[in-house]
C-alpha cells in the first residue's frame, strides 16, 4: 500500500487536516528516531519511512532538526566517514531525552483516549445515522 507523503509546509493538499496532523507529530518522530543512537539526516528520513507511516517531503526534516538543535534538544557534529563525505550526525541531548519522554507519555495518553472515542466510529460501516 502506498504511504501518504507529507507535503512541504507551504504546499496545498486536498487532505490538509491529515497533513497537519502528521506534520505536528514529526518533531516527536524526529526525536524518537534518535532514541537508540546518532543518525544523519537521510538516515532519519529512511528510519521514519521504515518504522512508521511518516513518509515526508525530504526538505521538511532538515529545518525541524535545525530548530530542535537551536532549542538544545539535539546535538550535531560532522563526522568523517571512511567512504564518502562527512555527514552531520544528530543525537539527543539530556534535555532532548527528557522532552521526548514527556512527549511519549502525553502522546500515548492522548491517542489511547482518542482510540476509545473512535472505536465505535470504525466499527460501524454505514455513515448515515
Amino acid at each position: 500500500m502506498a504511504k501518504p507523503r507529507i507535503p512541504p509546509a507551504n504546499g496545498d493538499s486536498p487532505d490538509r487536516w491529515e497533513a497537519q496532523l502528521r506534520k505536528g507529530a514529526l518533531e516527536m518522530a524526529a526525536l524518537a528516531s534518535l532514541w537508540q543512537g546518532p543518525l544523519y539526516g537521510l538516515e532519519i528520513i529512511r528510519f521514519l519511512e521504515s518504522q512508521s507511516s511518516l513518509v515526508l517531503a525530504e526538505g521538511t526534516i532538515y529545518p525541524i532538526l535545525n530548530r530542535l538543535k537551536a532549542e538544545d534538544l539535539l546535538a550535531a557534529e560532522w563526522v568523517e566517514v571512511e567512504t564518502g563525505h562527512p555527514r552531520k550526525y544528530y543525537s539527543l541531548t539530556e534535555s532532548g531525552r527528557h522532552r521526548l519522554r514527556r512527549m511519549a507519555d502525553a502522546w500515548m495518553s492522548f491517542s489511547g483516549g482518542l482510540s476509545r472515542l473512535l472505536g465505535p466510529v470504525l466499527e460501524r460501516q454505514e455513515i448515515a445515522p
Binding site: A57, G59, T60, Y62, P63, N66, A70
Partner: peptide, 24 residues
Amino acid sequence: AVLERLGSPQELADQYREGFLVGK
C-alpha cells in the same frame, strides 16, 4: 529528482526561516 523531492529553494528556506526567526 532529488532536488524536486527537497522542494524549491524558496520553500526550503521558508521552513528554515520560520523556526529560526521566531526562535532567535
